[in-house]
Design a protein around this nucleic acid. Structure first.
Lengths: 256, 256
DNA sequence: CAGTGGTCTAGACCACAGT
DNA sequence: CTGTGGTCTAGACCACTGA
């Protein structure tokens, strides 16, 4: 009898279980996960949900699919992934790495027009600005400049920001990540970055700017995260089907 | 009447047609694409292929889905996307931007151990190293350092590398992008970067390292692309389901 | 050859938006 | 309420892999 727990749809339950099994090493990298037929039997479902779950893991880079051969566990990537967002502390936990944070500044103030635009509030509306240093294995790794809407900011002020991840706390408050958009580029370290990340001013940093909205599409966070590139990279991997290339030119398909 | 062209599966045909319609502006940003039911009727297929096609476009950021509401066309992102790889020239064409390239150097030589490792060949095997400057609207935008296996390199030597994108040429030769892995970080410009990209030495650049393999998984390209961050960014956007966060903590779901 | 994943059908019921 | 997308079933046939 299938557990039928939570309100999660079957394909999500299967996905989460497989992800947990992979992260726990119960399926070794390079080894096969159970076949679709086996998963159907294990969960007593049809192929639909099973394929949905495995496809999702494949796009997230957990497994590698190819026709005819069993689906195998991918060699785990070194850095974070760009096609899915995991809060820093949760990512660090999943990698079994020590992490920490220091709050550098915390300011509740009236928003400038530019900030308001990014957060989708009216200029002059109250927002919370937060600057934190994030550590990985004791090394200063990232400077996080976040802005929150008044509603979320008020919640955060009641919380010990130097403690464990704030995302868990916000989730408990009913605030969670629905639609996330990220832009990645590079930027020279300014004086603040340089001091806290212990690099020279002007040194190249990897910047990720992120807006996060709830499931309802209402933005509640804007963040500018700057990483030391020697300590963190962002990865992605995917299959690109043969015909993605030319919408106009079919082209010869001569395979030696 | 459905064209029934190529050997492409239906869901790919539908996806390509929708992508073409979106890029051509036949569906305006923010506007709805045809409903699943309409697409089923138009293509005379069941919902399976239609949902597959739309889901694929959604993960690539072309459309935005939400339950109950029609699926709408996303506002086109400024930069390239990180969760799918499009060769530079093809990306530039899709954005209707002028582009060009200059080959800085081209070397066929025996591989060093490190290079061989990345390309998956034996140390000492012959490889082709290529350094090119890529231009966008006349501005030097990216320096590309690529290494190719002997087989692919031999093909490239027969080709005019300053002409239009080499990826189209390789596709005609039967070489195409199957499995692609990318790593994004930041790096200081070296002397070569600085001279060609017209920035100061040490200026921050956005680096994308990529290995490309065929559908058979055999690697044929390794590339180190360095972008001026003021001229190019990489974007991603996605939905993150509410339960992705805590595998352990269900948490209250109090929504004000 | 048997087993794998890839594709597709024709239904069904549900959750949610907007009227 | 109707129409939308979200999920799922129980079949089917195909393409590919490897023994």
């Amino acid at each position: 009898m299938t557990p039928a727990r939570h309100g999660l749809p079957m394909h999500r339950q299967i996905e989460e279980q497989l992800r947990a099994d992979i992260e726990a090493g119960r399926y070794a990298p390079g080894e096969a996960i159970p076949s679709e037929a086996q998963l159907c039997a294990m969960w007593e479902v049809s192929r639909g949900p099973v394929r949905h779950a495995v496809a999702s893991l494949a796009t997230q880079g957990y497994v590698r699919k190819s026709q005819g051969r069993p689906t195998t566990v991918r060699i785990p990537p070194i850095g974070q992934r760009v096609d899915t967002y995991t809060p820093f502390s949760q990512w660090a936990r999943s990698q079994r790495r020590r992490y920490g944070q220091r709050t550098i500044s915390l300011t509740m103030h009236m928003s400038e027009p530019e900030q308001a635009e990014r957060l989708g509030v009216r200029p002059g509306d109250r927002i919370l600005d937060m600057v934190r240093l994030r550590l990985l294995d004791g090394m200063p790794t990232m400077i996080e400049r976040s802005s929150f809407t008044d509603e979320v900011g008020t919640l955060l002020l009641k919380f010990d920001l130097d403690s464990d991840g704030i995302s868990d706390y916000l989730t408990e408050c009913g605030i969670h990540y629905g639609v996330v958009e990220q832009t990645v580029d590079a930027i020279a370290a300014d004086e603040l970055d340089a001091r806290w990340l212990e690099v020279a001013p002007g040194a190249p940093l990897l910047r990720v700017r992120r807006t996060a909205a709830g499931d309802d599409g209402v933005v509640w966070e804007y963040s500018d995260d700057r990483y030391r590139p020697d300590l963190m990279t962002f990865n992605s991997s995917f299959r690109r089907s043969a015909a993605d290339a030319g919408a106009g030119t079919p082209g010869a398909r001569a395979r030696p």
